[in-house]
Simulated scan of single mutants.
Amino acid sequence: MRADRPMHQLKDQQDLRRVRAADPDFSGTLAKGLMILQSFVRDPRAHANSEFADRLGLPRPTVSRLCRSLQALGFLDHDERLDRYFIGPAAVALGYPYVINTPLLPQLRPAMQSMADRFEGAVSVGVTMDLDVVYVETCAHEQGTLKRPGVGAVRGIVETAMGRAWLAQLPAAERNRFLARAKRERTDEYARSSEGLKASLANHGKRGFAINMGDAGLGVLAVGVASNIRYGPRRLLFNCAVPGYRAKSADLVKTIGPALVQLVNMADRQVGLR
């Protein structure tokens, strides 16, 4: 399919028209239903039909039919008292096959948990999805971090250490195109992260890992490594996040980063032995 924007980043009716003009076989009705579901990724609260219609630029009767269909299939739940829709359990079940088939996760969990306990933080695995990283597993110390990401959590690539590690392994031209688009479409996120992002990319070659010095918010520091493990077309990305009050920036460089590199190297070797 040729389109100006990947399907999972369609924002409204205008985007749909552009995609359908480029690909007559593209299913607009299916895309509209998925766009309603994806509204909950950025804004997980309950929504009224009118909110979906306004946000997506769709006619309210169309939204009503789509929501009723999604409710019948279990992807939405409806609260009659509030007259609002919640994300339904079928959406959770749909992600389960992806998580359980993620390569090596059962074998890696003990090492991830050990590292999380050692540094009193959280060790996560994620994959890229357009401008974001989606978390597929997290092992956390019992007190964890202030922003422990659960399975299915979405964070911007430019503001996460694992996302920056993924960027560092891209060819320069491809990375520059990505960054230009991120700056254009995620203006606030890019502005908040740009200085830390540039420093992390500049030092990745000599360190072997990427760094986030807290620009993602709440004083959480993190290191990230891109593995060689493929899940379909995507690499598994690893992240170790620690609260800033428990660690210093020097700890990321001297101790936590190298420990994460060691964990990822172990995982890469297991794939090589298969």
Rank of each mutant, 00 (worst) to 15 (best):
L58N: 02
P61E: 11
C67D: 08
C67G: 09
C67T: 14
A72V: 10
G74H: 06
G74N: 07
F75W: 09
F75Q: 03
L76S: 01
L76F: 03
L76Y: 01
D79I: 01
E80M: 11
R81E: 14
L82F: 09
F86I: 08
F86Q: 14
G88I: 04
P89V: 02
P89E: 10
V92G: 08
A93Y: 13
L94P: 06
Y96C: 10
P97A: 02
Y98L: 15
V99D: 08
V99C: 08
N101G: 13
N101F: 10
T102G: 05
L104I: 00
L105Q: 02
L105I: 08
P106I: 01
P106Y: 05
L108E: 00
M112W: 00
Q113T: 00
S114W: 10
D117A: 05
D117V: 03
R118M: 12
F119M: 05
A122V: 10
A122P: 05
V125H: 01
V127K: 12
L131E: 12
D132K: 07
V133S: 02
V133E: 08
Y135G: 00
Y135H: 09
Y135L: 10
V136C: 09
T138G: 00
A140I: 02
A140L: 06
H141L: 00
E142A: 12
G144T: 00
G144S: 05
